[in-house]
Simulated scan of single mutants.
Amino acid sequence: MNAPDTKSPLLRVRGIAKRYGERVALHDASFDLWPGEVLAVVGESGSGKSTLLNAIAARDKPDAGSVEFQVRGGGLQEVFTMTEAQQRMLARTDWGFVHQNPADGLRMDVSAGANVGERLMGLGERHYGRLRATAAEWLGRVEIDPARIDDAPRTFSGGMRQRLQIARNLVTQPRLVFMDEPTSGLDVSVQARLLDLLRQLTRQMQLAAIVVTHDLAVARLLAHRMLVMQQGRVVEAGLTDQVLDDPQHAYTQLLVSSVLQP
């Protein structure tokens, strides 16, 4: 996959660091993300992948560093100097966050349609007919039968819940989505369908995404570029195919050769 060619980054991350007591969870992570680009962050458990994702997504403030996002009509702005209200609005509109466990990103006891429509209501949409029609359209787009619009997510399979979480995030047409191990815990056949869906949606919507995964096959299928993390540090970065076909760092070579198990 060739990365989209654009003039300025959508997201600029510089020197992000995070400690938990004496443990350094993240050390001096920096990268740019371009509009429409998918970036995979890979490494074994405990490498700092999710810490990095949560810091960038303003879910857990880092100890040092900056995260700038290209707001609509306003250029790059530092996320951590925004007010809480501005950060919440960003999370509801231009950003999405897909959790590893769909139950963390869904309201399990309200209907599928209400889960999708809730983000639109947060932006002021109150017309019941439009909310329901948009929810039904998005259920169809993520391969859920629109006839199940009134069913609660707790009645859905794991793969359906994950697809519903994706619909809930994408209904507001975000420009950037964070994904934390989106295929983890799913059967292989369900994973394949979900990955195909994600690849289609990111292309169709020109959607930028940061995907945390321990699965190199997921990174190869979805991502233009990748970062490899070890013990809180980015040890290698580059185009996905180049990194996987010709790894330079010893740790990446071990990951690729499957000597290290996630």
Rank of each mutant, 00 (worst) to 15 (best):
H27C: 08
G46C: 03
Q77Y: 02
L90N: 02
P102T: 06
Q100E: 07
R14Y: 07
G46W: 01
G15Y: 09
W95E: 00
Q87N: 08
G75W: 04
L90W: 11
M89G: 00
L11T: 07
P62H: 09
L33K: 07
V79Y: 03
L52Y: 06
L11S: 03
G74W: 00
K61G: 11
P62Y: 10
A29K: 06
G73Y: 02
S66Q: 15
R23H: 13
A58M: 14
S50K: 03
W95L: 09
G43W: 00
V67R: 01
Y20L: 15
S30A: 10
V42Y: 02
G43A: 11
R107T: 10
S47Y: 05
L10N: 04
V24S: 11
R107W: 10
Q100W: 09
V41H: 08
A40Q: 08
A57I: 08
A58I: 11
S111D: 02
D109C: 04
E78V: 05
R59A: 10
S47Q: 01
A64C: 03
R23N: 13
M108T: 05
R92E: 06
L106K: 06
L106F: 12
M82S: 10
Q77V: 14
A17E: 14
T81F: 13
G48K: 05
T81Q: 14
N101T: 11
S66G: 12
I56E: 10
D32M: 08
E68R: 14
R59K: 11
Q86L: 01
A57W: 01
G15F: 02
A55L: 09
G48W: 00
I16S: 04
R23E: 12
A103L: 04
G105C: 12
R72C: 01
L90P: 00
V79Q: 00
V42G: 00
Q77K: 15
A112H: 02
Q70A: 15
K61C: 09
V110Y: 07
P35T: 14
R12D: 14
G75Q: 08
Q87Y: 06
V24G: 01
R72Q: 14
A29E: 06
H27A: 13
M89Y: 11
Q87R: 15
L26K: 07
D109F: 12
A55H: 05
G96F: 00
Y20C: 12
A58D: 09
V67F: 07
R92Q: 15
Q77A: 12
V71A: 15
R59C: 04
P35W: 13
G48T: 04
I16N: 00
A64G: 09
N54A: 03
G46F: 03
R23F: 03
S45W: 03
V71Y: 07
G46R: 01
T93W: 02
G43N: 01
N54H: 14
Q87D: 01
L39N: 01
S66F: 11
T93H: 04
F97D: 04
S50M: 05
G74D: 09
